[in-house]
């Protein structure tokens, strides 16, 4: 029996008039110990999909199962790493993790719980920052705390909703490696959501594209049979990696059909936005802008016409 199963689930938001279907006919099955990555466009319903499993979202049709039991509400057996970390800002690193541990392991002695918390802080290399508040940490450190908090609950499955999307490329690479390492040492089942095809292939056993049809559906799973540990420098030249990558991107692009589509890919764009000179009205001091910078926008999006 698979650990996690979704059968014919669909989900939409809103009521009659303004209703929009987000997911349709989702079927997914994840075996124990598997590392599954779901890749999809921004806004295509990835968070909605993972929240069907976490229990924060209920499907309109179909069902989500864990070990054959229907998922009706969130629970500590499904550890969720939130897209935006969601640490409680008034608690220190240690307290944030302790909040989870104290709740899940009520029967343990306080000493046991304390050690468990310390162990997980050390696992994500944050022992030196255990007594800091989230606002004193960098984005990467916050995400590590979030991962540690989730791992400390000893969940049956680790659900990660774009855990690294808000981070810069270098930090992202480091954390990809760190999380892969942690996974290899304890082999928890992982379902990881991302919008980055490279990241997907680098960390996954199995990649499933979330096809941006409206409403979105899951595509054919791709098995990633690359050797572990994967070295990110050499893997770029691995023909197998290149082939998988091309295949994945093509699947995603094709799904958008001939319509104009948007893909989130790593492309470097010039850091200047064109100036609008059409609107020269009577109050020049109002739009004395000069060139504007693009870097406020973290995702570098490029319009691709298929």
């Amino acid at each position: 029996m698979p650990l996690i199963e979704i059968k014919g689930a669909s989900k939409g938001y809103g009521h009659n008039g303004s209703r929009s279907e987000v997911l349709k006919n989702i079927n997914l099955s994840v075996e124990e110990g598997e590392f599954v990555v779901i890749v999809g466009y921004s806004g295509s319903g990835k968070s909605t999909l993972i929240n069907l499993i976490s229990g924060l979202v209920k499907p309109d049709a179909g069902e989500a199962l864990i070990e054959g039991r229907k998922i009706t509400e969130p629970g500590p057996d499904r550890g969720l790493v939130f897209q935006n970390y969601s640490l409680l800002p008034w608690l220190t690193v240690e307290e944030n993790i302790a909040l989870a541990v104290d709740e899940v392991f009520k029967e343990w002695t306080p000493k046991q719980r304390k050690e468990h918390v310390a162990k997980h802080i050390a696992m994500v290399k944050l022992s030196h920052a255990a007594h800091k508040l989230p606002k004193e940490l960098s984005g990467g450190m916050r995400q590590r705390v979030s991962v540690a908090r989730t791992l400390a609950m000893n969940p049956k499955v680790l659900l990660m909703d774009e855990p690294l999307s808000a981070l810069d490329a270098l930090t992202r690479a480091t954390l990809q490696d760190e999380i892969s390492e942690i996974w290899q040492s304890n082999k928890t089942t992982v379902i990881w959501i991302t919008n980055d095809p490279d990241e997907a292939i680098l960390v996954a056993d199995k990649v499933i594209p979330l096809l941006p049809t409206a409403p979105a559906t899951l595509g054919e799973p791709m098995l990633i049979d690359l050797e572990r540990p994967r070295d990110r420098r050499s893997i770029n030249h691995d023909p197998k990696f290149k082939k998988l990558r091309t295949q994945l991107i093509t699947t995603l692009l094709d799904a958008k059909g001939r319509t104009k589509s948007k893909a989130t890919m790593k492309l470097t764009l010039p850091d200047i936005l064109p100036e609008d000179i059409t609107n020269k009205n009577a109050l020049p001091f109002l739009n004395r802008g000069g060139p504007k910078r693009r870097n406020a926008d973290k995702r570098e999006e490029v319009e691709v016409t298929a």
Binding site: S54, G55, L56, E73, P74, G75, P76, R78, G79, L80, F82, N84, S86, L88, W90, L91, L99, A100, E103, V104, M153
Partner: peptide
Amino acid sequence: VDYLNVAKVLKLSKWKTLWKVLVPATL
């Protein structure tokens, strides 16, 4: 909503959600 979701995922009791999440967030 994120904080409330954290409380839900951790399955905090009503009482703990009030004191550990709602009250500090409202302070």
